[in-house]
Design a protein around this nucleic acid. Structure first.
Length: 723
DNA sequence: GACGGAATCGTTTTT
DNA sequence: CGATTCCGTC
């Protein structure tokens, strides 16, 4: 076979990776070094040089977006369909395994998946039924505990031998939670992975089948894998040991969610004769940007180590803007964006990146003010909206009556006279009979000592769901969806709701029907994966609609640094570069967390192709209080030669942004001022020093200005002139 | 069960 | 400061 197409576009390191002859390979792929290309070409390479079929390949990613892109690029390179190659997310693939082998996994055929919100509701219900004090045992914390345990591969049973009362209580809640899930026929995200791992471990026949099938296992973003995921990968590649992992320890930013960077070094130990390749040539950013990124990340410890370089342009230095406050910061950014797009650049090639979502607001206001179209990422996704979840809950309970979560969700939405009191009776009955709410409801209406006021609405509800099941059975998915929304009067319910949301909600319900229609037409009937409804329901949870803007729309992109991983932009604003914000307050006195913040900064910097702005504010309102943060340590950690401090205006037309000479001299000791001394400030005018605080670079003074009032200023930046 | 006022609380979120 | 949630009242 002619492999020219596969190898020709690769650089030397990429070629080494793609053609690696050992079984296990670790590719340490720097930002913008072409890691997806390597993965895709590796797949094409092994398909061309080994006697294998597409069906022998398993390629795993974390996000649906990455999986889709990989699929698309493989098809393009091979110029052939993927056939039965498995390309997908960890969760998606684990889900498929469980659907195919639901019996062996001891799950009901129509098992449903809980998203984080569903899971939290289950936990809250559980705590109430156990009469556990929610203030002492916050549901969120329990959710976190359960998920962390599962991500480590630990079941509640294995935790029970502890004497620590806290751990004991947690373990017993965990166990009770698991029992509820089993009885309801639902699995949470972590369960998908753990359950499918256990399935393969327990069932030799299945394991042999799959390890025999998968001759090559490839993984993207390996630094983000948790323990269970790594064990899962090891198991599925057990036969051939052809495990090809691509990752970047410097871009590990999800340790707080169970990701284990150590899996990289663990891999090196577990596969001692693996091929190790570094991809360090960067095809994205200018030399200035890369130099800054390299210098910053070099301060972290325990790195595998790598240095990005480019054949490309030197570019412009990174621009640093010191804003007076967060308003000024936002105005400056919006104004630069106006300039940039006036020069004919696309808005969608511009990103404003921040540490926390709350920061988006100020930028939105200024962008609106200037009439610049933008789009904010994050927030509620389509399938997470209340009205959509309501409609889906009906589909779910029709499919699986024992799903208590869905039962509680729909029992009185829209309202049908089943209030908290009736619900309490149902819950008690269910607990006594150790059965689902649905079964409790059926029992209850048969009892003679139940007042009709309570019996009638329950009986009606049961009738309604059974009726839906009958009338929709055999219908197409979209027809089924639309019928349910209609006959359950969801539309009327939301129509009655006042406020501007109402209209949007109705539109969303319509969109749900068309989403179902589209799913219907795109799906290839595969009974192995359950009926179409269950496939659609799983799709809704596992791919709850991406938050990405349509590529055709020319919007400025606002998102968190986390959300920006994997993306690139011509012009990037990294805003809010202040101690306490970035790095975040919670990270400042923990060196591991601080290093993760630094990696986050590294990720942010390496998003920029051509131009990068860092901004910070001297004063910032947080929770309604004035703060006087000092500039982020990450600014100081960048080489001065790659930075240039800028002012908002002035200078020549051609070079208005870079008109100021670099003066970012953070090491200069500030002058000494005395209490009561009169001083002049460039913006605030004249004032008197009231208080001094801190030492050296960190010293701040409180000044009462004649006009601007009382302010705290960092002496190092205030540029005060004694009068 | 709808509404309003008080209380609470405040990183990051691939699935 | 602001969003969200909770609780009490009508």
């Amino acid at each position: 076979m002619d492999v020219t197409n596969i190898l020709a576009p690769l650089n030397e390191a990429q070629m080494d990776a793609v053609t690696a002859s050992t079984r296990a390979a670790l590719v340490l792929a720097g930002a913008g070094s072409g890691k997806t290309r390597v993965l895709v070409h590796r797949i094409a390479w092994v398909l061309s040089t080994e006697p294998i079929e597409p069906g022998n390949i398993l390629a795993v990613t974390f996000t649906n977006k990455a999986a889709n892109e990989m699929r698309w690029r493989i098809q393009r390179l091979l110029d052939a369909p993927l056939n039965d190659m498995w390309v997908g997310t960890f969760h998606g693939l684990a889900h498929q395994l469980l659907r195919r082998h639901y019996k062996e996994a001891e799950l009901p055929k129509s098992f449903q998946i809980l998203d984080s919100d569903d899971q939290l509701r289950v936990i809250k219900r559980l705590l109430r039924s156990l009469e556990v004090d929610e203030t002492k045992w916050p549901p969120k914390q329990i959710q976190w505990f359960i998920n962390s345990q599962k991500e480590e591969g630990l079941r509640a049973e294995s935790l029970h031998e502890t004497r620590d009362p806290f751990a004991k209580q947690m373990a017993s809640i965990y166990m009770a939670y698991q029992l509820i899930c089993e009885r309801s026929g639902v699995v949470d995200f972590a369960e998908l992975l753990l359950r499918s791992l256990e399935l393969m471990r327990k069932n030799k026949q299945l394991r042999d089948h799959y390890i025999n099938r998968f001759k090559h296992v490839l993984v993207d973003e390996f630094q983000d894998t948790n323990r269970v995921q790594y064990a899962w990968l090891r198991l599925l590649s057990e036969d051939s040991e052809n495990l090809f992992v691509v990752g970047d320890d410097d871009q590990s930013i999800y340790s707080w969610r169970g990701a284990r960077v150590e899996n990289l070094t663990k891999f090196q130990k577990d596969y001692p004769s693996h091929t190790f390749v570094r991809l360090e040539q960067n095809y994205r950013s200018t030399a200035h940007i890369l130099a800054a990124a390299n210098e910053l990340i070099s301060r972290n410890t325990n790195r595998l180590g790598k240095n990005l370089w480019t054949h490309g342009n030197q570019g412009e230095p990174i621009a640093l803007y010191r804003a007076f406050n967060e308003q000024d910061e936002a105005y400056f950014v919006a104004d630069r964006i106006r300039e940039w797009s006036a020069k004919g650049h696309n808005r969608k090639d511009i990103a404003i990146l921040y540490r926390s979502n709350a920061q988006s607001r100020q930028f939105e206001e200024k962008l609106i003010g200037m009439g610049i179209p933008y789009r904010v990422y994050g927030g509620l996704r389509f399938f997470e909206r209340a009205e959509i979840k309501d409609a889906l809950a009906y589909l779910r309970i029709v499919s699986n009556r024992d799903d208590d979560g869905s039962f509680e969700r729909v029992i009185n939405t829209p309202t049908r006279g089943i209030g908290p009191k009736t619900l309490d009776i149902l819950r008690t009955t269910a607990r006594q009979g150790d059965c689902s709410l649905w079964q409790a409801a059926r029992q209850l209406i048969l009892k003679s000592d139940i007042p009709n006021r309570i019996r009638a609405p329950i009986a009606n509800f049961i009738e309604l769901i059974d009726q839906l099941d009958k009338t929709t059975d055999g219908n197409g998915l979209s027809e089924q969806t639309s019928k349910i929304i209609e006959s359950v009067k969801l539309r009327d319910f939301y129509q009655r709701e006042s406020g501007p949301q109402s209209e949007q909600r109705l539109e969303n319900l319509d969109e749900l029907i068309s989403a179902a229609r589209q799913f219907e037409s795109e799906s290839n009937q595969n009974e192995e994966l359950g009926d179409l409804t269950n496939q659609f329901l799983a799709h809704a949870v596992l791919e709850s609609g991406d938050n990405q803007a349509e590529l055709s729309e020319d919007y400025v992109q606002l998102m968190t640094l986390h959300a920006a991983k994997g993306l690139e932009f011509g012009l990037v604003f990294l805003v809010g570069m202040e101690e306490g914000l970035f790095p975040s307050q919670q990270s400042i006195d923990d060196s591991n967390k601080l290093e993760e913040e630094r990696r986050l900064c590294y990720v942010g910097i390496t998003r920029a192709k051509k131009t990068l702005f860092l901004t910070y504010a001297e004063t910032r309102r947080i929770y309604g209080k004035e703060n006087y943060p000092s500039p982020s340590r990450f600014i100081r950690e960048l080489p001065e030669k790659n930075l240039i401090e800028v002012r908002a205006r002035g200078g020549s037309v051609n070079n208005n942004v870079f008109s100021e000479p670099p003066l970012s001299n953070y090491s200069t000791a500030p002058h000494h001022f005395n209490l009561g001394q009169s001083v002049h400030h460039q913006k605030f005018g004249n004032g008197i020093i009231l208080k001094c605080e801190g030492e050296g670079n960190q010293s701040r003074v409180q000044i009462s200005f004649n006009e601007a009032g009382i302010k705290w200023l960092m002496l190092a930046y205030a540029n005060l002139r004694p009068l």
